[in-house]
């Protein structure tokens, strides 16, 4: 599903009555099957952008169209994966993955759920409750739950942000593998430049509510992080975000 974002504005009222623009005239087109990473510092508006596309927040001005249709609130066609896994604690892994299918009364929900549980590598954990899972496992369930519902698009709000560095690393590879299989349109929010370069077809840098850079990544997949070109991209984005020479920034 292609997404067309045109002249999108979102503001919050400051204490002194002045408007604080979180999204300031954002224009963006996402093609069907594209993996887009939105990169930026805290407070640059990247989560707000995702929340508007998901339908949780209403734009003040501008339009978001999915193919031909203007969006009206959240819907099952736009699956969301959150930073905190957001699993239903009273449902087992399998029941969590089945949630969307149950809501729509899809038959064979259990079998479909199993397929996605296998895909994210959690076979054998079907009957565990979220409280018994590690952070990385819970996040996999979150991804399986979103995928099992077969959305046209996947919105991911720093899904790896709460994980430790090693788990993050393996999850990135997993995620790329899953994307290769499912070929969903993905909008992925992150503040890590290497993560964006590793995953994305296109990286969007957001600064002060504006798109400051829209860069296609021309590297073969799976991406080789030792490739000099990989690091060129990382450096380019880091200096774009921080505004200083990239060598002085330590990133994980």
């Amino acid at each position: 599903m292609a997404v067309y974002i045109e002249h999108l504005f979102k503001a919050y009222e400051e204490r002194d009555g002045e408007m604080q623009y979180v999204l300031n005239d954002v224009n963006l087109t996402i093609e069907t099957g594209e993996f887009i990473c939105v990169l930026g510092k805290s407070g640059c508006g990247k989560s707000t952008l995702l929340n508007v596309i998901a339908g949780y927040l209403k734009p003040d001005k501008g339009s978001i169209r999915l193919n031909e249709d203007e969006i009206h609130g959240p819907s099952a066609e736009r699956g969301v994966v959150f930073q905190q896994h957001a699993l239903f604690p009273w449902r087992t892994v399998s029941q969590n993955v089945q949630f969307g299918l149950n809501m729509r009364g899809v038959p064979d929900a259990k079998e479909i759920a199993q397929k996605y549980i296998d895909m994210v590598g959690l076979t054998g954990y079907e009957n565990k409750y979220p409280s018994g899972l590690s952070g990385g496992m819970a996040q996999r369930v979150g991804i399986a739950r979103a995928l099992a519902n077969d959305p046209k698009m996947l919105l991911m709000d720093e899904p790896l942000g709460a994980l430790d560095a090693l788990t993050r690393d393996s999850m990135r590879r997993e995620l790329e593998r899953i994307w290769q299989i499912t070929k969903k349109t993905i909008l992925f929010i992150t503040h890590s430049a290497p993560e964006a370069v590793y995953l994305a077809d296109r990286v969007i840098v957001l600064q002060k509510g504006k798109v400051s850079l829209d860069q296609r990544i021309d590297l073969p997949r799976p991406r080789d992080i030792t490739n000099p070109k990989f690091n060129d991209y990382v450096r380019q984005f880091e200096s774009e975000i921080t505004g200083v020479a990239a060598d002085s920034v330590i990133t994980e």
């Binding site: 998901a54 339908g55 949780y56 609130g73 959240p74 819907s75 099952a76 736009r78 699956g79 969301v80 959150f82 905190q84 957001a86 239903f88 009273w90 949630f99 969307g100 149950n102 809501m103 729509r104 739950r145 979103a146 519902n149």
Partner: peptide, 26 residues
């Protein structure tokens, strides 16, 4: 938890399902 409500509506829950399957359970 608002994030549970968000994830439920994005998985296609209607208002009645949101109440019975999420809010009441929670």
């Amino acid at each position: 938890d608002p994030v549970l409500i968000r994830s439920a509506v994005s998985l296609g829950a209607n208002p009645w399902q949101l109440f019975t399957r999420v809010k009441f359970q929670s």
